[in-house]
Nucleic acid binder design. Structure first.
Length: 584
RNA sequence: GGACCUGUGGUGCAGUUUGGAGUGCACGCCGGCCUGUCAAGCCGGAGGUCGCGGGUUCAAAUCCCGUCAGGUCCGCCA
C-alpha cells in the first residue's frame, strides 16, 4: 500500500515516486491552485503539495502518491527532519474520514489526563507517546537479548495462582468450576520461579506481568511488568553481574551510551548519607550530622537523639510561605518539626546573630543559639551566604528519612536528566519493625537468606541481622529488588520461628514450596527489575502511566472502557457469589 | 483511611482574592477569500448545566457546606 514512511524522507530520496500513508496532521489551503498537507505516521511528518484543492480534514486517513523533490529556496523548514524535501504533485486517496479529534494530536498542548485516557487511541498517536511505546519495546528487547545471551531460559508462569497471603493484597478470581473457591493473580512469580530452580531450569527469566491490589501512585499501577530472574548455584555477585548486564544494555539500546559499572552502597550508609534506601546519587546535598554540635544544647527543639541537616545552595531566597510548606511536609513525613536557617551577610539580615565567621543566620531559632552552636552549625554544614540550612532533630531513622525526602523535594533533579546513575544497595536488614504480637517483620520476604556473618544472631539479636537482599536503584527510583534465597529447611525453620510463623501456618501458606524443597533444592538467588519505571526514566517521564499503553487512573478506573463495572447478577450466580450492599 | 491541589464552549487558559448580565484570550470547528505555507494569513459564524447538589444573598463561576472526578503525597506496596 505504501512505498515509504513519512518521517524517513530525505534529500537522498529526491526524484523518487513515492506513496505514503498516514493521518492528516495539518492542512493549509491557498485558494484553488495550491494546498499543503502535513501527513503523519509513526515516523514523523512530511509535507505534501497538492496542485489544487483537496477535501480532507484533520486526522483523515489518506494515501498520498507523488514525487519527492527539494523544497524551493527559502521554504526549507529546519524544524522538521523532513524539512528539506516535500512530496510534489500529489494525488490523494481517501482511506477513511474522521471526526475532529477530541484534542489536538500534538505534543505542544498539555491535555487533561482523563480526556487523554478516554481517547487513548488518539493520545497514543502523539509523537511523544509513540516514542515512549517504542522506547519500551527497545527496553524489552534489550533485556530479553541480554538474558538469552547469558544462558537464561524464558519460562512463562501461571497468572491463575493460589492465594499465598503475603505482603501485597492480591486480586481475586472466583472459580466457576469450584464455586466459592478462588484463584489469585500473582503479585509476582516469586514462588513459581523458585520452583523452577528445584525443577533444574538453572537460569530462568521472564518479562512477567505482576498484579497488586494496592493504592496507585505515579510510579505504581495495579499491573506492572518485571524482568524476573532466578538462577541456581549462584551468589549475590553473580546476580549483580547478570542484572547489571541487562540494565546497562537497556540503557545503551535507548540512549546509545553505556553507563559505567554499577557502584554499590551498603544500606546503612545509604540511610545515613541520603536518608533513603534509594538514593539519587546524581547530586550531593548529603545529610550532615550535627549531633555533636548540639550535644547538651539549651535549644529545646534540638534536644533529640539525632540532629541532622541538609544545605540547599542559594536556598536563602525561599519565601517564608515556601519554608512553612516544607515544615508541613516534614511534619507530614513524621518529624516533630523543621528548623531552617538562612545564611546571610551580617548587614543583610537585620538583627541576625553574629557567628564570628563573617556570616549571619536568619531564623526564628537564631536567638536561642549559643555562639559556639552558630559557628559549629556553619562549620559542619559548610554553608555560605545565600544558602539555606534545613535541620531535623528526632530519632535517628526519622531524622534521616525526613531529610532524605526533603533533599529530593527541594534539590531533586528532573527525572530524565542524565547521567543514568545505577546503584546496588546491599546488606539490607533482615527484619524491619515488629508486628502486633512482637515478632519481627521480614523486610524483604521470608525466603531471604540471612547474611552468613549474622546467622548466629538470628534468634538473639534479630534487629541487627543483615540479609542477602539487595535493591537496584536508578536516579532515585527503586528499580527492583532481589535476594539469595533460603534453600535449606533448617534455616527456613529458624526464620519462620523468628517471624512467629508456626510449622502448621507455614505449611498451609507455602506448603507446596516447602514440600518441593524436600526433593533437592539447589542454592539459588534472583532479582526482578521494574520495566515500567526503567522505561519512564529513559523516556524522561515522571509517571509510569506515560509508558503504559492503557493505564488506570489513581483510583484504579479506566476512562476508556469504564472498568471496573458492576457484574451482571447472572454471572455472579454462576460463580456462586452474592453481592453485599455497601455499608452506610 | 488522611492531607493538599485542580474542575469555566471540543482543547488550553484568564475571570474566583474584593459576589453584580456567561464577560474575555488562544487553539480547534463551520462558511467565505487566498498560488509557497508550515502552530499559514484575512473576513464572518456557531458552540456554555462555570463538575454535581444544597445553603447564604436582592444577586453566586466567585462566599459556605456536602459530593463526584482527576492529580501529587502520607498510610499501604513482604
Amino acid at each position: 500500500m505504501r512505498t515509504h514512511l513519512c518521517g524517513a524522507l530525505r534529500s537522498g530520496d529526491i526524484g523518487a515516486a513515492v506513496t505514503v500513508c498516514g493521518w492528516v496532521a495539518k492542512r493549509r489551503e491557498h485558494g484553488e491552485h495550491l494546498a499543503f498537507i502535513d501527513l503523519r505516521d509513526h515516523t514523523g511528518i512530511v509535507q505534501c503539495v497538492i496542485p489544487g484543492t483537496v477535501d480532507v480534514r484533520s486526522e483523515y486517513v489518506i494515501a498520498v502518491h507523488g514525487v519527492v523533490r527539494a523544497r524551493p529556496d527559502g521554504t526549507v523548514n529546519p524544524d522538521l527532519p523532513t524539512g528539506e524535501v516535500e512530496i510534489g504533485d500529489c494525488t490523494v486517496t481517501l482511506l477513511n474520514s474522521a471526526e475532529p479529534p477530541p484534542f489536538a494530536v500534538d505534543d505542544r498542548v498539555e491535555v487533561d489526563e482523563v480526556i487523554r485516557l478516554r481517547h487513548r487511541y488518539v493520545d497514543l498517536r502523539r509523537p511523544r507517546m509513540q516514542a515512549n511505546l517504542r522506547i519500551r519495546a527497545k527496553v524489552n528487547h534489550a533485556l530479553r537479548t541480554a538474558m538469552d545471551r547469558q544462558g537464561f531460559v524464558e519460562v512463562e508462569t501461571p497468572l491463575l495462582w493460589a492465594p499465598t497471603p503475603e505482603g501485597a493484597r492480591e486480586f481475586t478470581v472466583p472459580s466457576r468450576l469450584h464455586p466459592g473457591s478462588c484463584y489469585v493473580l500473582p503479585q509476582s512469580p516469586q514462588l513459581a520461579k523458585q520452583l523452577l530452580m528445584v525443577a533444574g531450569v538453572d537460569r530462568y527469566y521472564q518479562i512477567a506481568r505482576c498484579l497488586r491490589d494496592e493504592d496507585l501512585r505515579a510510579d505504581r499501577q495495579f499491573e506492572f511488568s518485571q524482568l524476573d530472574v532466578e538462577a541456581s548455584f549462584v551468589s549475590q555477585e553473580d546476580v549483580f553481574e547478570f542484572v547489571s548486564e541487562a540494565v546497562l544494555d537497556a540503557a545503551e539500546a535507548v540512549t546509545g551510551d553505556r553507563p559505567g559499572a554499577v557502584p554499590r552502597m551498603i544500606w546503612a550508609e545509604a540511610i545515613d548519607r541520603y536518608g533513603t534506601d534509594k538514593p539519587d546519587i546524581r547530586f550531593g546535598m548529603e545529610l550532615i550530622d550535627l549531633s555533636t554540635v548540639f550535644e547538651g544544647t539549651a535549644v529545646k527543639a534540638f534536644g533529640a537523639p539525632c540532629v541532622k541537616a541538609i544545605v540547599l545552595e542559594g536556598g536563602a531566597t525561599l519565601t517564608r510561605s515556601k519554608l512553612d510548606g516544607l515544615t508541613d511536609r516534614a511534619k507530614g513525613l513524621g518529624a516533630k518539626g523543621l528548623a531552617w536557617f538562612r545564611v546571610t551577610e551580617p548587614e543583610a539580615a537585620d538583627g541576625a546573630g553574629a557567628t564570628g565567621s563573617g556570616l549571619a543566620l536568619d531564623s526564628p531559632l537564631d536567638r536561642f543559639l549559643s555562639d559556639p552552636e552558630r559557628s559549629g552549625l556553619l562549620a559542619a554544614t559548610g554553608a555560605g551566604a545565600g544558602d539555606l540550612i534545613l535541620v531535623v532533630a528526632d530519632e535517628y531513622r526519622t531524622a534521616c528519612t525526613v531529610l532524605g525526602q526533603l533533599r529530593v523535594d527541594v534539590g531533586g533533579r528532573p527525572v530524565g536528566e542524565g547521567p543514568y546513575c545505577y546503584l546496588w544497595v546491599v546488606d539490607f536488614p533482615m527484619f524491619d519493625g515488629v508486628d502486633e504480637a512482637g515478632h519481627p517483620i521480614a523486610a524483604h520476604h521470608p525466603f531471604t537468606m540471612p547474611h552468613p556473618d549474622d546467622l548466629d544472631r538470628l534468634e538473639s539479636e534479630p534487629a541487627a541481622v543483615r540479609s542477602q537482599a539487595y535493591d537496584l536503584v536508578l536516579n532515585g527510583w527503586e528499580l527492583g529488588s532481589g535476594s539469595v534465597r533460603i534453600h535449606r529447611a533448617d534455616i527456613q525453620s529458624r526464620v519462620f520461628a523468628v517471624l512467629g510463623v508456626g510449622e502448621e501456618e507455614a505449611m498451609s501458606r507455602f506448603g507446596f514450596l516447602l514440600g518441593a524443597f524436600r526433593f533437592g533444592a539447589p542454592p539459588h538467588a534472583g532479582f526482578a527489575v521494574g520495566i515500567d519505571r526503567l522505561t519512564a526514566i529513559f523516556a524522561g517521564e515522571g509517571s509510569i502511566r506515560e509508558v503504559i499503553a492503557f493505564p488506570k487512573t489513581q483510583s484504579g478506573s479506566d476512562p476508556m472502557t469504564g472498568a471496573p463495572k458492576p457484574l451482571a447478577t447472572g454471572l455472579l450466580g454462576e460463580l456462586g457469589l452474592q453481592l453485599i450492599p455497601p455499608r452506610d
